[in-house]
Design a protein around this nucleic acid. Structure first.
Lengths: 154, 154
DNA sequence: TCCAATTAGTGGCATATGCCATCTTTCGGA
DNA sequence: TCCGAAAGATGGCATATGCCACTAATTGGA
């Protein structure tokens, strides 16, 4: 009759999500390994690709990622010559990002590997189930959560 | 008509999962902040708590975490005196883990904070929806995925 | 009984993420 | 026009995770 048995325990939504993320992350990482990219990097390159020379802040918002975290994650990709940054013409505070030709090529290469992983995943769980899951996850990502006490004031 | 528009693109299950994980992770981290623990650390302490002096490998399996990653993650908790390790009586290769009294107290403290976050999350999405989501995530975590080419031999 | 294969962890290295302090560039008034 | 507030990014620091190489203990035969 410890807390462990109380209903609701060992049912942490966050822990469950991270656990699944670790599992799936490794699967996609393995699939992308031949390209030398990690799943996160692939996602980032793709986001930049479809973003049209997006600003750092735009990418960070889209990926629900901290701006400084994005900066850190970008470094190896810049170092390896896959992406490059340049200042916005009208607002020098803003830094925009684009893929280099090598980055575009690497993305094309990785997309083939990604497709195989994506296909296998959907074969296992079913395309509809996968779509439902993604919808549920997107809903979670868009939730307006706030810790009680976090100044609703002013 | 670039790849971006092809059905299936920008629908990466892995990217969607990570995105939601970042969002929810920050929410739980914020909720637990007063205790000084991160969501991951809370989950780890709880797992140790219910595990009954579990071996490192057992924890790693339960959390679908790499053994060495578990070792790294454990360090700050050991440093702060929340958990301690000891060798298994029968097999000296095995290292077992348990909470210290301070660790137990910290866990109790964190559980109160966690409950508030958990409650708010379930109020927003609905307890049933949350349960469904966790079930789906557990199913993903238990999938038998393997990259084509990964030696089916021997 | 002794050695090869297996099992459990550790340490080093690299990426993934966040928070906070700080700097630069803009933007809005007074 | 000048200054303080706001916006966008960087750098430092800390945790989260993984892979690989390596070490220590065990286990299974020969």
């Amino acid at each position: 009759m410890t807390e462990a048995q109380q209903p609701g325990f060992s049912r942490c939504n966050n822990a469950t999500l991270r656990r699944a993320a670790r599992r799936l992350g490794r699967f996609y990482d393995d699939a992308l390994a031949p390209s030398g990219l990690k799943g996160t990097q692939f996602g980032l390159l793709f986001q930049i690709h479809v973003g049209g020379e997006p600003a750092m802040g735009a990418i960070a918002d889209a990926l629900i990622m901290d701006l400084s975290a994005l900066g850190h994650t970008l470094k190896p990709l810049i170092r390896d010559g896959y992406v490059e940054t340049f200042a916005d013409k009208d607002d020098r505070r803003i830094k925009r990002i684009r893929l280099t030709p090598q980055g575009q090529a690497k993305l094309d290469e990785a997309i083939k590997l990604w497709s195989a992983a994506q296909r296998q995943f959907e074969d296992k769980v079913g395309a509809e189930q996968a779509a439902h899951l993604r919808a549920a996850l997107d809903a979670v990502a868009d939730l307006d959560l706030e810790i009680a006490g976090a100044a609703p004031s002013s």
